[in-house]
Amino acid sequence: MNKIVLFIFCILTIGFSNGFAKEKSKDGVTFSINQINSPAVNAFFLARGFSMEQIKPYSDTCVYTTILRNDNKEDNIHYLRKNWFAKKNTISYSVKTNDYWLKATKANPSSWIAFRLSQMPEEQIYEAKGDWNQGMLSIDLLLGNTFDITIVWDTNGKPHELTIEGINCAK
């Protein structure tokens, strides 16, 4: 059991990454994104009670560990994850909702808790001076693609966005 826990920790901490973490800051907000390869995604969720059949639709997408952080000195930020999007060749790809994945995976209640909490929250308010979250994000593109991702938030109703270009979804 210890090995399994350490295994999961390694996956989430290091992201079983392709070694190309990208990070960008704008208007006091920092976003970083780092791919988690499919075997690692599968291993994580198999250890949380999913079957391979259940989790494959998710792990077949481009999955990343992401961090969003608000280092503004006074203003909180608010985001809706449904407003974030990936773009490849002028075509936009949305980030699928948790409800979509609940239906697609047919997860049992205990597995679903782990899935839901491991994702970047769908809506969140981060207070100033350092609130942040780390969570998984699935972009519904086939492995092997490169795309730009735009995250959107508002501060006191004023919209902001940040785009990281050239994100790889390695096979």
Binding site: F7, C10, I11, T13, I14, F16, P39, I67
Partner: peptide, 29 residues
Amino acid sequence: NLYKSVIIISLLSISNLQASQSGLTKHLT
């Protein structure tokens, strides 16, 4: 075998770890 693979790749990815971690905040709201 899977476990060993994870450890090896983890070690190889140490430099990447720094880029993908956010600092622990020293503030309460």
